[in-house]
């Protein structure tokens, strides 16, 4: 590891948290990101690359990375694993036809060595849609109860209304903080 990377890692320990947001395409990742940042969510195009936002929350500096979820982009995800403290997995709760696909992608992600030790938050997004599945359904279908390798939690949310977004972030920060910042 080079000098700059070492310095970066050292600094990251100081109340700086890196969150990686992944999920299938059309899950609403960029909408969640922009919602966090209080931006207009009506003009968002499908993501071809990745987006980054730095947010201040409860004295933490959150670096949130949102990487495009199209099938052809998923092989790039691994370039963003390094230094990830928390993984936010976003699900389109109304996309019933692709939940198996979603489950597979998530479980193979959790095998990644560089994500070992990161906290997993699953957002069952699009709860504003009347036809969306509940977080309970998603939890079963994605077989979350079998995840033993990571601390995880699932929350129903809506990027459109903002429902539960902050609760999710609060939880993931708390979980990360309890692991990493115990010295403070």
């Amino acid at each position: 590891m080079g000098l700059l990377t070492i310095l970066k890692k050292m600094k990251q320990k100081e109340k700086e948290v890196r969150l990686l947001m992944l999920g299938l395409d059309n899950a609403g990742k960029t909408t969640i990101l922009k919602k966090f940042n209080g931006e207009d969510i009506n003009t968002i195009s499908p993501t071809l690359g990745f987006n980054i936002k730095t947010l201040e929350h409860r004295g933490f500096k959150l670096n949130v990375w949102d990487v495009g979820g199209q099938r052809s982009l998923r092989s790039y995800w691994r370039n963003y694993f390094e230094c990830t403290d928390g993984l936010i997995w976003v699900v389109d709760s109304a996309d019933r036809m692709r939940l198996q696909d979603c489950k597979q992608e998530l479980h193979s992600l959790l095998l990644e060595e560089r994500l070992a030790g990161s906290t997993l938050l699953v957002f069952a997004n699009k709860q504003d849609l009347p036809g969306s599945l509940s977080s309970e359904d998603i939890r079963k279908t994605l077989d979350l109860d079998n995840i033993k390798s990571h601390h995880w939690r699932i929350l129903p949310c809506s990027a459109v209304t903002g429902e539960n977004l902050l609760d999710g972030v609060d939880w993931i920060i708390d979980d990360i903080a309890s692991r990493i910042f115990t010295m403070d």
Partner: peptide, 20 residues
């Protein structure tokens, strides 16, 4: 543009290596 291309990440890696 606000959105980043994947190639930026590769270029950034090269840059860090170069400086180190």
């Amino acid at each position: 543009t606000e959105e980043n291309k994947f190639i930026y990440t590769d270029i950034h890696k090269d840059y860090i290596n170069l400086i180190e």
